[in-house]
Design a protein around this nucleic acid. Structure first.
Length: 428
RNA sequence: GGAGAGGUGGCCGAGUGGCCGAAGGCAACGGUUUGCUAAACCGUCGUAGGGACAAAAUCUCUACCGAGGGUUCAAAUCCCUCCCUCUCCGCCA
C-alpha cells in the first residue's frame, strides 16, 4: 500500500519506478478518483458541520422552551444530502482503495534493471561444488532408495505435490528445524514464535497476499480463513494496528510453520521430489526496524540465513532480484540459491526482502519517533523477512550434496547432535 | 453447541439521547519546590483526514467510545447484525 498523497505528489517518479517492474497501473483512474474523493470529502464535512450546528441550535431552543420545528425541518434536509453525498464518497473510496491495494511496491534504487529471473545479478558465491565419480542422483531417487521418502503414499493420502517422510528422513527434517531455530534464537537475537497457520482476510491483506493473489492461497470452505503460504504472514501481522515504542526496535521474530501454496500456474515445473509442494516446512525470519536501519537489517538478515548454509557446508550463491522478478510487496530482495548436483544448478532456498513501509502501511504498524516526547509523531516501521531456511529444500540439498557412491548419505556435522550422533543415513 | 456478563483514550474507570473527544485516577512528559531521591503542586498529555498560512509554530473543521448497518434534527448512550473477551454447562486433544 502506498501513501496516496505521496503518489500524487511524485507521480512521475512513481510511474518510472513502477515501469521498471513491468506493471501497468491505471493512473488516470486513480488520479480522477482521488480528486473526486477530495471534493466529496470537503462537501460532506461542510454539511456535517452545518448539521452539528443546527442540532446544537435545536438543543438550545429546547432548553429555552422555544419552538424548534423550523430548524429540525432544515436539518432533516441536510441529513438527506449528507446521506447521498456520503454514499458516493464511499463508493469512490472503495474503488480507489481496491486499486491502491493492487499497486506493487517501488523497487529500491539499488535494484538492478530487468524483466525476469535471467536478469538477476549474482552478488557472491560460497563453498565448493562437490565432484562425483558417477552422475549425482536426484534427491527423490536417493530418498526412495533409502526408504525415507515416499511420494506414492503421499499421492494416495493427499495427492500430487505432497510428500511423506519417514524414519531418518522425518528425523532429519525435525533436526533441521531444531537446528535452525536454535541458531537464530541463541546466536542471532530472534524471538521464537509459534503462531496460528490459519489466518483471517485482514491479516492476508496486511502482508500483501490479498486482494491480488487469492488464487495462490488455500482457503477454508466454511470460514473466511486462509492457510498461510509463509510464516511471514502471521509474524508480520503480530503488530498490526500497533504503535511500538522506538526503544523496542528492532524486533526480530523467527518461527517454523508449515506453508501452504496452491502452486496454480506452475504445472509441469518441478513435478518430482520435494522442491515444489503444496505443503512444506519453513523457518522464517521477520524483522521490524526504523526506516534508517532497514537496509542494514536486510544485509544482516540475509547473513543469518546464509550462516545456516555455511554451517551445513552447502555451496550457494546470493543474487539480487531484478525489478521485474521481485515479489509484489518487496522493495529489494536477495535470493539465496543452493547448489543441487543432480540439476547442475543453483536453486532458490531462501528469499530475503526489505518491504520498507509497504506492509506497515497496509497493516498499520507504526512506532513512536523520539520516545515519549511531545513532538513525537508515529511513523511507519519498515518490515523485512527472509527464509532461514526452507526446510524441505535444505533436506534436498543435503541428500544431493552429501550422497555417497554406496547410496548412503552423510549427515552434516552440525546436524549430528540433533540426530543422536548419527553420521550417516543408510538403507533401513 | 447451550446459558449469562462484558467490550469506552497507553492502562484503570465514569458516562442510558443534546452543553461528551468523553469525568476521575494511574502512567508518561515539561516545570516549580527540594542538599539528593521521594513527595507535593502547576501544566501538557489520543489517532487520522481536510482547510487557513510561503512554511513552521499555530489556528480551524471533520471522523473515530469493538465492527457494520438502522432510528433521530441530534447516538458512547436506543434498535439490528457480526466479531472478540470472560463465567457456567456440554463436547473434545
Amino acid at each position: 500500500m502506498h501513501d496516496l498523497k505521496y503518489l500524487r505528489d511524485n507521480l512521475d517518479l512513481v510511474r518510472t519506478s513502477l515501469e521498471r517492474r513491468g506493471r501497468d497501473v491505471p493512473w488516470d483512474t486513480i488520479q480522477k478518483l482521488s480528486e473526486e474523493r477530495r471534493t466529496l470529502t470537503t462537501q460532506v464535512e461542510q454539511l456535517r458541520h452545518e448539521l452539528k450546528k443546527g442540532s446544537d441550535d435545536v438543543a438550545q431552543r429546547r432548553r429555552a422552551k422555544l419552538p424548534a420545528d423550523e430548524a429540525i425541518e432544515a436539518m432533516k434536509q441536510v441529513g438527506e444530502r449528507i446521506k447521498e453525498i456520503d454514499g458516493r464518497l464511499r463508493d469512490t473510496e472503495e474503488t480507489l482503495n481496491g486499486l491502491a491495494l493492487c499497486i506493487p511496491n517501488l523497487p529500491h534504487h539499488t535494484v538492478p534493471q530487468g524483466t525476469d529471473s535471467t536478469q538477476n545479478v549474482e552478488v557472491r558465491r560460497w563453498g565448493t561444488i562437490p565432484s562425483f565419480s558417477s552422475p549425482p542422483k536426484p534427491h527423490w531417487e536417493i530418498g526412495e532408495a533409502l526408504g525415507i521418502l515416499d511420494f506414492d503414499q503421499a499421492a494416495k493420502i493427499a495427492g500430487a505435490r505432497f510428500a511423506v517422510l519417514s524414519g531418518a528422513g522425518a528425523k532429519m527434517e525435525r533436526a533441521l528445524i531444531d537446528y535452525m531455530l536454535d541458531l537464530h534464537t541463541t546466536q542471532h537475537g530472534y524471538r521464537e514464535i509459534l503462531s496460528p497457520v490459519l489466518v483471517n482476510r485482514q491479516t492476508m491483506t496486511g502482508t500483501g497476499q490479498l486482494p491480488k493473489f487469492e488464487e495462490d492461497l488455500f482457503r477454508l470452505r466454511d470460514e473466511d480463513w486462509f492457510l498461510i503460504p509463509t510464516a511471514e504472514v502471521p509474524l508480520t501481522n503480530l503488530h498490526r494496528e500497533e504503535i511500538l515504542s522506538e526503544d523496542r526496535l528492532p524486533i526480530r521474530y523467527t518461527a517454523c510453520t508449515p506453508c501452504f501454496r496452491r502452486e496454480a500456474g506452475s504445472y509441469g515445473r518441478d513435478t518430482r521430489g520435494l522442491i515444489r509442494l503444496h505443503q512444506f516446512n519453513k523457518v522464517e525470519l521477520v524483522a521490524f526496524t526504523t526506516p534508517d536501519c532497514s537496509y542494514d537489517e536486510l544485509e544482516r538478515l540475509t547473513g543469518h540465513a546464509e550462516s545456516i548454509l555455511q554451517n551445513l557446508n552447502l555451496p550457494y550463491r546470493v543474487v539480487t532480484l531484478c525489478a521485474g522478478d521481485m515479489g509484489f510487496s518487496s522493495a529489494k530482495t536477495y535470493d539465496l540459491e543452493v547448489w543441487l548436483p543432480s540439476q547442475g544448478q543453483y536453486r532458490e532456498i531462501s528469499s530475503c526482502s526489505n518491504f520498507e513501509s509497504f506492509q506497515a502501511r497496509r497493516a498499520n504498524i507504526r512506532y513512536r519517533v523520539g520516545g515519549g516526547k511531545k513532538e513525537a509523531k508515529p511513523d511507519f516501521v519498515h518490515t523485512l523477512n527472509g527464509s532461514g531456511l526452507a526446510v524441505g529444500r535444505t533436506l534436498v540439498a543435503i541428500l544431493e550434496n552429501y550422497q555417497q557412491p554406496d547410496g548412503s548419505v552423510l549427515i552434516p556435522e552440525a546436524l549430528r547432535p540433533y540426530m543422536g550422533g548419527k553420521e550417516r543415513i543408510v538403507k533401513e
